[in-house]
Design a protein around this nucleic acid. Structure first.
Length: 581
RNA sequence: CGGGGUGUAGCGCAGCCCGGUUAGCGCGCCUCGUUCGGGACGAGGAGGUCGGAGGUUCAAAUCCUCUCACCCCGACCA
C-alpha cells in the first residue's frame, strides 16, 4: 500500500471527545470514525487490524471443529417470541418494522437464529456434537455507549454455538473452547488475558467464564486474591467478610430524629456504619412481591447476586411502594415486618455481626442491639453483597484485591433454555426425542482491537503485535525526490510485496518528522528507513516499534532478511499460546 | 431515564457575559519558492447555513423559547 493514497487522515491534536487513550489513537491514527453515538465506520488501518483478529479467531475456531456460517442481522419478532426474549429483553433490543408493518428486530445475539437453523437441519444423535460460529454484526441499543470501540451499539462479534447430547459432552467442548480462547488472545498479542468466573446474565445457563484484560480503564470489577489463587467477576465473587461476636445486648428503641441514611444514623448514635443494618427495597421479585434486602450498613447490595436470587431484574422501589407494606422509608426494619407482603432477603453479614442499629418502622426511631438470631430466629441468610478490598478469599488464606477489567470474550454453558423453548429435538439411540444442550461463546472483535491498543502503546501511538498489525512493515523513504533514494525504496517495496509481506510504503516525500509521527500512530512493528545517510554505505536502517530496538542492514538481500525477521517475530508471539485441546 | 457540559472551517479552539463593519486564531488542505533524519520557513490561496427552528431588535454567533446532536457522571447492560 502506498501511503500517498491511504484514506484516513491522521490528526496531530487529540480529538476532544476521546476519553481513553485507545479512543484517542483510534481517531488520531485514522482507524475509525464515529457516525452516531456508539456507531462507527472503520477506515483501512482499523479494518485491517480487525480482519487479522477475525482470521486468528477463524483459525482457532476451525481447529476445534467450528463450522462458520452467516445468520441474518434482521430477525422476525416471532423467532424471539418463541424463546420469550422478545418480551423479556428491554429497550436495548432495537425493534423495527418492515414496509408491511411486520415487527422485526436487530439481533443482539443469535441463539434464536441458530436454533431455528439447526432444528431443521439436525435430527439424529449421530450428528452430535457440532459447533457453528459466525463473525457478524450485532446491534445492542445501549443506554450509554462510551470509550471509543470498547463499548458501542453496533459491533462485530464472533459468536459460536455448540450443541450436545450430554452435559459431559458440553463440558468437554467448553474446555476446548476455553483453551481456544486462550490461544486467540495469546496470538493476538495479549497472553495476559485472565479468565474469571462470571454471571450468565440474561443469557441464562449456569457455568460461565469471562476473558478479562485487566486494566484500570476496564468497566468490570474483578475480585482477585493477593496470592493469585482466586479471581472472579464481582457479580459472582464470594469471600469471607469479617463479623464480630459481642454478647447480645437488650433490644432498645431510641429516638433518631431526621436520621434517614446510614451515615446520619451512625453519626447521630456515634457508632460505626458496620454496626448498623441497612434496608434496601426493590420492586419486585418473580412473584411480584416487594423485595426487602437487609445488609450490614457498611456494605453494598450486589444487584447481580440479587437478580439471581429473586429471578427478576431489581428495580429500586419508590417510597409509596415501600409504605404499602408497612415499612417506613429511612427507618425501615425487618423487625415486625409482615413477611407475607415482602420477600425478605437478609445478607450473611447481618447474621455474623451483633448489636446492630436497625430501623423501627416508625418515623424518627431506630432499634439498637438488633441480633438476628435472637430477634428474628430461624431466618435464613444469603450472600447478596459486594466483596470488597480487604475481605478474605473464599479459602480464607489471602486478602482480596479489586482490579478493573475489559471483557474481551465470554463462554457460557447455556443448557436447554433455547432448544427447549424453541422445540429443537433429535432422536437418541432408542429413537426417543431429546432436547440438546447448548453452549455459547463470544468475542467482540472491535473491542479486542481497542483493548490491545489500550495496553500496547506508548505516548505516540499503538505498538501493534506483529500478528494483528495493520501492515507488517512500514517502509519510510526520506528525501524521495533524490533518485538513489527513490530507486532503492521503490525496488525494496516491490521486492517485499513480491515476498508476500504486507508493506505500507510512505511514498509521500514528506519531511522525516511527519513520516515518523504518522508511523508511530500506525504502530507497525517493523520500520524500514531508506535514507541517503545509510544508503551511501549500501545500508538500510530498521527500527522495531514494539521493542524499540534498531540498527542497520545491507540493502542487498534486505527483503529476505526482513522476511526472516517476520517469521521469527510471528513465531515468538505464537509460542505464548498454549497447546490446543 | 436523572444530573452536568459542549455545539463556531477537516481537527483543536477564541469570540457570547456586555448585540453593532467583511466572524477570528493554531494545525491541516491547495499553489510557488527555500528547505529536509522526529510534526520546517516565507509568500499567496481555498474552505463557515456560527447544530436547527422560532422569537426579541434598526441590527443576533452573542439575548429569549423550543428542539436536535454529541460528551461526561449516574441508572441500565450479553
Amino acid at each position: 500500500m502506498r501511503m500517498s493514497h491511504l484514506v484516513g487522515a491522521r490528526y496531530k491534536e487529540r480529538p476532544a471527545e476521546a476519553t481513553l487513550e485507545s479512543h484517542a489513537f483510534l481517531l488520531r491514527g485514522g482507524y475509525a470514525r464515529q457516525v452516531a453515538n456508539g456507531i462507527y465506520s472503520l477506515l483501512p488501518p482499523g479494518f485491517r487490524v480487525c480482519h487479522k483478529i477475525e482470521q486468528i479467531i477463524r483459525e482457532e475456531m476451525d481447529r476445534i471443529g467450528g463450522q462458520e456460517v452467516l445468520m441474518p442481522v434482521v430477525l422476525p419478532r416471532e423467532l424471539w417470541e418463541e424463546s420469550g426474549r422478545y418480551e423479556n429483553v428491554g429497550s436495548e433490543l432495537l425493534r423495527i418494522q418492515d414496509r408491511t408493518g411486520h415487527d422485526m428486530l436487530l439481533a443482539m445475539t443469535h441463539e434464536e437464529a441458530v436454533v431455528h437453523l439447526c432444528r431443521y437441519e439436525v435430527h439424529s444423535h449421530t450428528q452430535f456434537p457440532f459447533m457453528l460460529y459466525q463473525i457478524q454484526t450485532k446491534f445492542r441499543d445501549e443506554p450509554r455507549s462510551r470509550g471509543g470501540l470498547i463499548r458501542v451499539r453496533e459491533f462485530t462479534m464472533k459468536d459460536a454455538y455448540s450443541f450436545h447430547t450430554s452435559q459431559e459432552d458440553l463440558e468437554a467442548c467448553y474446555a476446548r473452547c476455553y483453551r481456544a480462547y486462550q490461544r486467540i488472545f495469546a496470538r493476538a498479542g495479549i497472553p495476559e488475558v485472565a479468565v474469571v468466573q462470571s454471571d450468565s446474565g440474561m443469557m441464562g445457563g449456569s457455568v460461565a467464564h469471562e476473558f478479562m484484560l485487566l486494566t484500570a480503564v476496564g468497566e468490570d470489577t474483578i475480585v482477585t486474591s493477593e496470592d493469585g489463587s482466586y479471581i472472579a467477576n464481582q457479580e459472582v465473587a464470594t469471600g469471607i467478610i469479617d463479623g464480630d461476636s459481642e454478647a447480645p445486648l437488650p433490644l432498645e428503641k431510641v429516638h433518631t430524629p431526621d436520621c434517614r441514611t446510614i451515615d446520619e444514623v451512625a453519626g447521630f448514635l456515634g457508632v460505626a456504619t458496620r454496626k448498623t443494618a441497612k434496608a434496601v427495597f426493590y420492586d419486585h421479585d418473580s412473584e411480584g412481591k416487594l423485595v426487602f434486602v437487609v445488609v450490614r450498613g457498611d456494605r453494598e447490595v450486589n444487584e447481580a447476586k440479587l437478580a439471581r436470587l429473586i429471578q427478576a431484574a431489581p428495580v429500586p422501589a419508590d417510597e409509596a411502594r415501600i409504605r404499602s407494606v408497612g415499612a417506613e422509608p429511612g427507618f425501615a426494619s425487618p423487625l415486625g415486618i409482615d413477611r407475607e407482603k415482602v420477600r425478605l432477603v437478609i445478607d450473611h453479614t447481618v447474621k455474623s455481626s451483633n448489636n446492630l442499629v436497625t430501623g423501627a418502622n416508625e418515623t424518627g426511631y431506630h432499634y439498637t442491639n438488633f441480633n438476628l438470631d435472637r430477634d428474628l430466629p430461624g431466618v435464613e441468610t444469603v450472600d447478596v453483597v459486594d466483596i470488597e478490598e480487604g475481605d478474605l478469599a473464599p479459602d480464607g488464606k489471602s486478602r482480596i484485591v479489586l482490579q478493573r477489567g475489559i471483557e474481551v470474550g465470554n463462554i457460557f454453558q447455556l443448557g436447554r433454555k433455547y432448544t427447549q423453548s424453541m422445540g429443537m429435538t433429535y432422536d437418541d439411540e432408542q429413537g426417543k426425542a431429546q432436547v440438546p444442550i447448548m453452549g455459547c461463546y463470544g468475542i467482540g472483535v472491535g473491542r479486542l482491537m481497542s483493548s490491545v491498543m489500550e495496553v500496547r502503546r506508548d505516548e505516540y501511538g499503538p505498538r501493534w503485535p506483529i500478528t494483528i498489525a495493520p501492515w507488517q512493515v512500514h517502509l519510510n523513504a526520506l528525501k524521495l525526490d533524490q533518485p538513489p533514494v527513490r530507486e532503492a525504496a521503490e525496488t525494496l517495496y516491490l521486492e517485499l510485496c513480491a515476498a508476500g509481506i504486507e508493506v505500507l510504503y510512505d511514498d509521500r516525500n514528506a519531511r522525516p518528522g511527519v513520516q515518523f509521527a504518522d508511523a508511530d500512530l500506525l504502530g507497525i512493528p517493523f520500520r524500514i528507513i531508506v535514507g541517503e545517510r545509510n544508503l551511501k554505505d549500501g545500508n538500510l536502517e530498521w527500527k522495531r516499534r514494539d521493542t524499540g530496538e534498531n540498527g542497520t542492514i545491507p540493502l542487498e538481500n534486505a527483503a529476505e532478511t526482513i522476511a526472516q525477521w517476520l517469521r521469527e517475530a510471528i513465531a515468538q508471539v505464537e509460542t505464548a499460546a498454549p497447546e490446543s485441546l
